[in-house]
Nucleic acid binder design. Structure first.
Length: 583
RNA sequence: GGCCCCGUAGCUCAGCUGGAUAGAGCAGCAGCCUUCUAAGCUGUUGGUCGCAGGUUCGAGUCCUGCCGGGGUCGCCA
């Protein structure tokens, strides 16, 4: 139930009523007509731009058209007043009963309030995290992980058919380096003194247990084998272990993927990469050619040579992209093409990629590949997630990648908790750099948005507990129509109005792929609740629990339950807990 | 040098895909206050939306060109 779309329907009807034989021409422009809350609450409850958008088609001045539409809308029994303002806005003021009904109906919907069908079950793939299986996750992965997970929740709630996917880079040079690093630990586990870890191998001691496990399993038999023999065995074991570590890290953030897709599974003789490239060759999209060197500074090892290229440029990429390396193996990009083909083959229409901002150069080629492979059917959206800067009480946390002393995701979660991490990662637009302060995010203060929002929910529960105590157990049931009708204070109606916005926030956030809008909305709702609460300090008549007036109390408790409902649903979408009390 | 992202109050950021007089929190200023268990509260100052053009009824939002900051730039993943 979205009040704004309901009234959009009524505005459409009013337009249709006065359109006459222009109806067909006007229908084409209807999508630009919106009904939204006005920026300034004094303008009314809802505003529509219909008259300004359609003035040309009607051959009328915006304000004249607005007048005609207003006359129609005034016939609506739910509308208390219609005003025309500015260049031709139509402002609607709704009868109070509409808000009361809205509250009753959202309480009836319960946890389903806000759910939408705009996704129309579109098959949607959200790929996120996809960290190389070479070690535990560090903070750099954290933001994309939370973002992708919350976005997936949001899209599901908005009616998309969502698959959460992780692309495992288990082919290529990196996992060979991993295998060699583990092999060293294996020798160490057998009692050998391996000394310092050589440059170019992974130094982290998280690999020691893997080496130990191999020693337990194989004894010293691997020592006698050549690298060509032991490497695949060690590699497979190492990848499996690292993936288990990563899944464990993700679970600490309450993140679980549906599909872990192996890059290696695409490769090999007659594999998906082979067949995909064959198809592209047949389609004339692959050729042997030379690439112009990059503009500006020429890389030192630049060598002008002929290579196998995919014609991505004609699909919007900056240049064509190589598919085969100089050693005749496939490039990472070739796997990517086959992987994209696989996703499209599985029927996905919406392909969302959550990547770090340093992958910005990858956007155009992904879009081009999807366009080339799906004939423009599959829609790609790459969400770039900016970096997180860590602070400890205002001081930047120093990290050196070379020395391997990066902060792990697990350390952050263990220190401040899952809720703080998740909420803060979402309390900023994805493409803006985010400052994360260990001290601030656990502070119990107004300046800490995690606490501020969770505390608002705890406050609703505290009120309900309190009311149950002072009024007896009879406050849990649904409020009667008479009780609801007692809601009339501007602050109370204002809160309902805010609650009624939730469904359209869900829809717009889902369509824009911007979960942060939910976080900001919740922060506003929390703020409205706290403000209304504070008014009760000066004016006891506005408090939720009115000792000698059970009917008014019942109505107000329904409002409290409505706020609690939306806060908990919103927090659920973000993957953040809604605690009943905070002490 | 090419491409991508960012630039909004002193600071940190929103701005609902083009709407009305651009918002919030912090800081500042001025008051009030000891709680329906809870973060003290209320009011208020503060803006050439980086700059210059353009598109139209209307631009922080879209287009072009500059300025500043970050990222990225054949075969690494």
């Amino acid at each position: 139930m979205n009040l704004f779309s309901i009234f959009l329907g009524r505005v459409h009807a009013a337009i249709h009523d006065i359109a006459g034989d222009r109806a067909d021409a006007i229908a084409l422009h209807l999508s630009r007509v919106v009904v939204e809350p006005p920026r300034d609450a004094s303008h009314g409850d809802m505003a529509t731009n219909a008259a300004m958008v359609l003035a040309k088609e009607f051959g009328a001045k915006p304000r004249d058209l607005a007048e005609a539409l207003a006359a129609k809308l005034r016939e609506d029994p739910d509308v208390a007043a219609v005003e025309i303002a500015g260049p031709g806005f139509i402002n609607l003021r709704l009868r109070e009963a509409v808000w009361i009904d809205a509250l009753a109906s959202m309480l009836g919907a319960g946890p389903e309030f806000g759910r939408s069908q705009i996704g129309q079950n579109r098959a949607t793939n959200v790929e996120y995290v996809s960290a190389n299986p070479t070690g535990p996750m560090h903070v750099g992965h954290c933001r994309g992980a939370v973002f992708g997970d919350a976005l997936a929740n949001l899209l599901q709630f908005a009616g998309y058919d969502v698959t959460r996917e992780y692309y495992v880079n288990d082919a290529g040079a990196q996992v060979d380096v991993l295998a060699r690093s583990v092999y060293l630990r294996y020798r160490e586990a057998l009692g050998e003194d391996i000394g310092a870890i050589p440059e170019g191998l992974y130094p982290g001691d998280y690999l020691s247990p893997v080496g130990k496990a191999l020693a337990d399993l194989y004894g010293d038999t691997l020592l006698k084998k050549s690298e060509a023999e032991w490497l695949p065995m060690v590699r497979a074991a190492a990848i499996e272990e690292m993936l288990a570590v990563i899944k464990d890290d993700l679970a600490a953030l309450d993140i679980r993927h549906d599909v872990f897709f192996s890059e290696a599974s695409l490769q090999g003789q007659g594999g998906a990469v082979d067949t995909t490239l064959d198809q592209l060759r047949k389609a004339g999209l692959v050729y042997e050619g030379r690439l112009p060197p990059p503009k500006g500074q020429l890389p030192e090892d630049w060598e002008d040579r002929e290579q196998t290229l995919f014609k991505t440029e004609q699909f919007g990429d900056d240049t064509d992209r190589p598919l085969v390396k100089s050693d005749c193996s496939y490039t990472y990009f070739a796997s990517d093409v086959a992987y994209m083909k696989d996703k499209i083959g599985r029927g996905f229409e919406e392909l969302i990629f959550v990547l770090g901002a340093d992958h910005g150069g990858y956007v155009k080629r992904l879009e081009a590949v999807a366009a080339a492979l799906s004939g423009g059917k599959a829609h790609v959206d790459v969400k770039l997630v900016q970096l997180v800067r860590l602070f400890r009480a205002g001081e930047p946390v120093k990290m050196s990648k070379r020395a391997g002393d990066f902060v792990t995701l697990r350390e952050v979660v263990d220190e401040v908790g899952r809720d703080a991490v998740r909420f803060m990662m979402l309390f900023r637009k994805n493409d803006a750099v985010l400052d994360f302060d260990f001290a601030k995010v656990v502070e119990q203060s107004r300046e800490n948005p995690v606490f501020y929002v969770q505390y608002a929910y705890a406050r609703t529960q505290s009120v309900l507990r309190n009311a149950a105590e002072s009024l007896g157990g009879d406050v849990g049931g649904p409020a009667s129509a008479d009780a609801l009708a007692r809601l009339s204070d501007a602050g109370e109606i204002g809160l309902i109005r805010k609650l009624a916005e939730f469904p359209r926030i869900v829809e717009s956030a889902a369509q824009a792929h911007e979960p942060h809008r939910i976080a900001f909305y919740l922060h506003e709702l929390a703020s409205d609740l706290h403000h209304h609460w504070n008014r009760g300090n000066d004016n006891p008549g506005l408090r939720f629990v009115v000792a000698d007036d059970p009917q008014a109390t019942n109505g107000r408790l329904a409002l409290v339950r409505g706020v609690a409902l939306v806060l908990s649903t919103g927090l659920r979408l973000l993957g953040v807990a809604a605690p009943a009390e905070m002490r």
